[in-house]
Each structure stands twice: as C-alpha cells, then as structure tokens.
Simulated scan of single mutants.
Amino acid sequence: MRDELLNETLFFDLDDARTKIANWVADYNTRRPHSSLKYLTPAACAAHLTATDDRLRKPDQLRGSSVVPPAPPGVQTGEL
C-alpha cells in the first residue's frame, strides 16, 4: 500500500485521503489478481470454493473428538 498508493498519491484533505484509500482498498480486495490465490482475483477464487472443496477442512474431523474427555467411572459430573 505504501509503495503503490501512499508514496505516489497527493492527498488534498482528509476526505480526499479517505476516498482515495477506500478506492484503492476496494480495487486491491476485489479486482486485482493475487499470487497467493494462483493469480486469481479474490472474487474468482471465492467462486471456485465449495463446501466439498478438497482445500477446505473436512467437517467430520471436527465432529470426531469431544472438547473435554468424559469423566472417569465413579466420578459425579454434577448433572441433575
């Protein structure tokens, strides 16, 4: 952001700075390809993601283990 916007842009007042920065952020986050996304735009990358995509975590892995292990036999759990 510093190299592409802040060092090269002349801001006339605070409102002008806010407008130019907001436009740059919108362009960067929606229309520009990113190397980390295999040079796709964020919108194009999001369109390819699905709930069954291999790159996403498998939800069954999360359901397999409980957060807290069960109480040992003979220990009262405080249930009514």
Rank of each mutant, 00 (worst) to 15 (best):
V68D: 03
T41W: 04
L62C: 11
F12G: 07
T9A: 09
P42T: 01
L14K: 11
T30H: 11
L6Q: 12
F12M: 11
R2H: 14
L40Q: 15
R55M: 13
P59I: 15
G74D: 07
P69Q: 11
F12Q: 10
Y28M: 08
F12W: 10
P70I: 07
L80K: 10
D54H: 07
R32W: 09
V67G: 03
V68T: 15
S65P: 05
R63T: 13
V67P: 03
D54I: 01
V67L: 09
A43D: 12
A47P: 00
R57F: 00
A17R: 02
W24V: 01
A22N: 13
P70V: 05
R63L: 14
P73C: 00
D60M: 09
R31Y: 11
D16C: 09
D53Y: 03
R32I: 04
D13W: 03
R18L: 14
W24R: 05
D15R: 09
G74Q: 08
D13A: 02
P42S: 06
L37W: 00
D13L: 04
V68S: 05
P72S: 07
L80M: 09
G64V: 02
W24Y: 14
G78W: 04
P72H: 02
M1T: 01
T52Q: 04
Y28E: 12
G78C: 03
V25E: 07
E79G: 02
L62A: 15
A46K: 12
P33A: 15
R2L: 13
C45Q: 08
N29Q: 09
Y28L: 08
N7F: 05
Q76Y: 08
H48Q: 15
F11G: 13
K58Y: 06
F11M: 11
T19D: 14
L6W: 10
R2D: 12
D54R: 14
D27Q: 12
V68W: 01
V75W: 00
P70S: 11
P73W: 01
I21F: 08
L62P: 02
S66W: 07
T41M: 04
D3Q: 13
S66E: 10
G74V: 07
P33G: 10
E8L: 14
I21K: 06
Q76K: 06
W24I: 00
G74R: 07
T30Q: 09
R32Q: 15
R57E: 05
K38C: 04
T52M: 00
A44P: 02
T50W: 03
R31V: 10
L10W: 04
D15Q: 13
R57V: 01
T9S: 08
V67F: 00
V67K: 02
F12C: 05
D15V: 06
D15K: 09
D3M: 12
P72L: 04
G78F: 05
K20R: 11
V25M: 05
D13F: 01
A46Y: 03
A22D: 13
Q76D: 12
S66T: 15
T9L: 02
T9I: 02
K58H: 12
N23V: 04
W24G: 01
L80S: 08
L56I: 12
R55N: 07
R57H: 03
A22Q: 14
L10T: 10
D60R: 11
T77P: 00
A51N: 11
P33I: 05
Y39P: 04
L49D: 03
P33R: 14
F12A: 09
D27E: 12
F11T: 07
R18H: 15
P42G: 00
